[in-house]
Design a protein around this nucleic acid. Structure first.
Length: 587
RNA sequence: GUGCCCAUAGCUCAGCUGGAUAGAGCAUUGGAUUGCGGAUCCAAAGGCCGGAGGUUCGAAUCCUCUUGGGCACGCCA
């Protein structure tokens, strides 16, 4: 669609310049000419508001609009492209649909899976960090939002042409891990996830909970934990062995969850490998006078001239902090895989941390420090209220997925679709995932949100399953067409047959897909795509409700509408892929 | 207390770099010649865009103040 928009913009620009030249007006600022979509389709396909030019022409906008419309309408070749009319202060353009429809449908058919991909960000190497689980408990609802955002953005960036690298950082060391380990030593009695038939992350998580209960009336436990951490750092064989065993259980469990939700990474960093990084950079920074050592031995950075505080970089005993480590990791990454941008998908609670991190890296003089970005996302609550780990109201990711799958399964059964669906449990899983990812991505990242499992799985409304349903209906239509193909062989595709306003609306929307992907990437916002796809599907549902695709006497009409349906199928398929929502051919 | 973020229909959310009468979905009410899967579609009703100023030809959008909510303010991660 961009092509056409630019074409018409150029013509309007030429008209304005022509008018300026003839009336001896100078100082025309053409950058203030914007193209927008009229609020109602009847008004046209593009609109140019001319308010900004009133001053320079000393004329009322409607008068300018009338003059511009007149000039554009007599430009060579305009007749075949479309009509141009003034509507008050606006110049509206109504495209001639047929050639545009031909163009769009041909492009989709030719590009197939690649339709929607572009080179818009071709020069960019983008590293995207997300998920970053702890190895002391299973994933919860918050991780699901993180993962959905990270995975979807990675696909969107890739589609927009960027070279993208997904990285994960597993927090597999520290006091929280030792707590589970200590509790397991005390109460584990040699059991394993296998012996108990429990997923590894849940197994270990249960000991984390047991520790918390134990520590309530055993204050000395805290000291034992610290001792254990010390032993771990010293490489005590027994402690390290237990740590390895329990970490393996958790990471295996988390890997299963990733598989279930379609999450993957190009590189995984382990905190246990890299937690010592950063220290040397801090020490070097002291030499350069960037940081100061206090009398007690702690090292600080003064950020007050940036409106921030003084922050600790090294403890008085010389050891690193989380911040120190993140400094080291960023530097390491810039060496491992030099990037143009590094985006961290991390909950908004850590805004301050990243503020400081980025400031320190800038102080250290890394040129890439200006291209670090914290994609902060808000909390996910349930209709019942907030998640609070202390009150045990944290929603476990696997449990939630189980619940969604059950709801989906119930729905399939209620509609008596078991026989049509193929693999029943797989379909339920895919619907559950569609419901989850759509809901999580539909809300702008920075905002806190409410996740309503029942509403998310609903098959009507603004939901993932609704999109999947539209895809399934489209697939069904295309299957039927293939079965009866010979019936329609007398006719041939012709864009002229697609003369309904609904068909024009759909075709235009299909044409907007590639630009929409780029916008989503530019704004780091998958919800741009959810909204786009929902509206596209709604238009299509409305259309086929009233206008039969296959049940037509005119074989040419059938062929033409099928071409449009094929375009729909392609865009829905490619679009859902970018959101991590499975496309279903039947449901 | 200080800083950052959020506030749009009863509920859940869109609203692009300011542009035509602020939009969806859910819920509510009323409809759709047995229909290419009715898991759909249509319609009605529902708003001082938290409030007050300001900038502008023009503000949900930008600025200031204010109210309410969230989060962060550790030699934790």
């Amino acid at each position: 669609m961009k092509k056409y928009r630019d074409q018409w913009r150029d013509m309007v620009v030429a008209a304005l310049q022509g008018l300026a030249a003839e009336t001896n007006v100078s100082g025309l600022d053409i950058t203030s000419l914007v193209v927008e979509t009229p609020p109602k389709p009847e008004l046209g396909d593009f609109a140019f508001p001319l308010f900004p030019f009133a001053r320079v022409f000393r004329k009322a906008p409607p008068a300018i609009a009338a003059e511009v419309a007149r000039r554009v309408s007599v430009m060579p070749g305009v007749g075949g492209m479309g009509a141009v009319v003034a509507a008050g202060p606006y110049v509206n353009v109504k495209l001639t649909p047929a050639p545009v429809i031909d163009d769009i449908l041909a492009a989709i058919a030719a590009q197939g899976e690649a339709y929607g991909r572009s080179g818009a960000l071709a020069a960019q190497r983008v590293m995207l960090e997300f998920s970053c689980p702890n190895t002391n408990k299973p994933l919860h609802l918050g991780h699901l939002r993180n993962d959905a955002l990270g995975e979807s953005l990675s696909r969107i960036f890739t589609a927009a042409g960027a070279t993208l690298r997904k990285v994960n950082l597993i927090n597999d060391r520290g006091v929280h891990i030792c707590k589970s380990m200590l509790a397991y030593q005390m109460f584990g009695a040699g059991t394993t996830p296998a012996s108990e038939g429990v997923k590894g992350d849940h197994f270990v998580g249960s000991y984390y909970v047991k520790y918390a209960q134990h520590a309530k009336d055993h204050p000395e436990a805290e000291e034992e934990v610290r001792q254990m951490l010390r032993k771990w750092e010293e490489g005590d064989p027994a402690v390290v062995a237990l740590w390895k065993t329990m970490n393996a259980w958790v990471t295996e469990g988390i890997a299963q969850s990733y598989k279930r939700t379609g999450i993957s990474f190009d590189q995984v960093y382990f905190e246990s490998d890299i937690y010592k990084l950063g220290r040397s950079e801090i020490l070097a920074g002291i030499q350069k006078g960037l940081f100061q050592k206090d009398p007690d031995g702690s090292v600080w950075v003064d950020l007050t001239d940036r409106g921030m505080e003084r922050e600790v970089l090294l403890r008085s005993d010389g050891t690193s902090l989380y911040l120190t480590q993140d400094i080291g990791v960023a530097i390491q990454r810039s060496k491992d895989w030099p990037f143009d941008r590094l985006i961290y998908v991390v909950a908004s609670e850590q805004r301050h941390h990243f503020h400081v991190l980025f400031a320190v890296l800038e102080l250290l003089g890394f040129p890439w420090a200006a291209n670090l970005h914290h994609l902060a996302y808000g909390m996910v609550n349930l209709p019942e209220g907030k998640m609070k780990s202390r009150e045990g109201t944290v929603v476990d990711a696997d449990d939630l997925l189980d619940e969604l799958e059950k709801l989906a399964l119930d729905e399939i059964k209620a509609k008596e679709r078991e026989d049509d669906v193929g693999d029943l449990s797989r379909t339920a899983q895919e619907i559950a995932l569609g419901a989850l990812n759509y809901w999580l991505l539909q809300v702008t990242a920075v905002k806190d949100m409410t996740f309503d499992p029942k509403e998310s799985i609903s098959f009507n409304g603004n939901t993932g399953p609704y999109l999947q349903y539209t895809g399934a209906r489209i697939s069904s239509m295309l299957r039927k067409f293939e079965e009866r193909k010979s019936q329609y062989s007398a006719g041939a595709y012709s864009s002229a047959a697609l003369s309904l306003p609904e068909e024009w609306e759909i075709a235009k929307a299909l044409a907007l897909f590639p630009e929409t992907v780029v916008t989503a990437a530019r704004e780091l916002n998958p919800s741009v795509l959810t909204t786009y796809l929902f509206e596209l599907c709604k238009s299509f549902s409305r259309y086929y409700q009233d206008h039969p695709v296959l049940r037509n006497e005119d074989a040419g009409l059938v062929q033409s509408r099928i071409a449009l349906v094929r375009g729909m199928e392609r865009v829905v398929r490619n679009g859902l892929e970018l959101l991590g929502i499975p496309f279903l051919e039947a449901m």
